[in-house]
Write a protein that binds this DNA or RNA. Structure first.
Lengths: 156, 156
DNA sequence: TCAATGTATATTCCACAGCATATAGTGTAC
DNA sequence: GTACACTATATGCTGTGGAATATACATTGA
């Protein structure tokens, strides 16, 4: 009995997780698109590049658990907009070192306000402090376990 | 200070949320594809149709916070595989009533085991009982608030 | 009845992700 | 130093999602 109960709970939990993610992603993307002309995934790329200058395509792909092809194409788009740049890697000519341009750095600084304000409004308005703390801890633990076991890392 | 601290926490929390969702979605999709020839989003559609026979495309779109176009195309694909069927709605000739076929019912019954077993393994292996309870409560609360305010409901 | 408005769905166009593959470069064994 | 395996990235194909638009139907009110 407790097994069946737990299984139902897992499904509900997963559904809630996906629904929250979808709605937050959409809502933040809407604001970012209006004000800065980017979507949430691009904000995440830019933000990662800011915090990890000189990283490679594979580093981004591993961080976001998406394929390297998709990542490469995402960088193409950022490069086309003049927000990111590939530089040759002196240590390994197969790979490029990625970094923000000055325009990209300006953009991410501006978009960060939109992003964090939006999140604070959406999350802070819905959950109180203890719930946020519990949620943050549980998600951090879960994420660490999934990454440790390479769960859901895409092929390409 | 506590404001800046909270903002950083929100960003971290959001990143963890998205990363967990991505990896779980990929990992479950991988198993569902191998064993049943469907992906996670199709399992979710089929499961919703099982629990809400006679629903409409718009009901699915609202449930999953995706656009009606994407939903209609998703139903097209399920219909083409013989897993779902549209029936004319006698009360409103604009809309169709959706339901599983017998094949679809069989499929979702089989896939449910794969899905719930996979979830139990991935979630139960990473989080203990109190953390799961806290996570479930926080996500349910957050989801209810987002849905109440129609946050992130797509346009088309 | 008929026009105006709102609603449900399908269609179209564009952007993006996954996968498989191609290309180029690296490192190692012999 | 050459063949081989391995790695990093890029590209083509296909499927899918979002947004805008079109179409059909329903409902309201004069």
């Amino acid at each position: 009995m407790s097994g069946a109960h737990a299984a139902a709970d897992f499904s509900e939990l997963f559904a809630d997780l996906v629904r929250c993610e979808t709605r937050l992603y959409h809502a933040l993307g809407e604001r970012l698109r209006e004000r800065h002309g980017i979507v949430t995934s691009q904000y995440e790329f830019l933000s990662y590049l800011r915090d990890h200058p000189g990283c490679r395509v594979a580093d981004l792909a591993a961080e976001f658990a998406i394929g390297v092809g998709a990542t490469s194409k995402g960088i193409d788009r950022l490069e086309k907009q003049g927000w990111a740049a590939r530089r040759p890697n002196p240590a390994d000519r197969r790979s490029s070192l990625l970094a923000l341009t000055d325009d990209g750095a300006r953009l991410v600084a501006e978009a960060e306000r939109t992003f964090t304000d939006g999140l604070a409004e959406l999350l802070g308005g819905a959950l109180d402090e203890p719930a946020l703390t519990a949620l943050g801890r549980a998600l951090a633990t879960l994420r660490a376990a999934l990454e440790r076991d390479q769960v859901g890392t895409p092929a390409g």
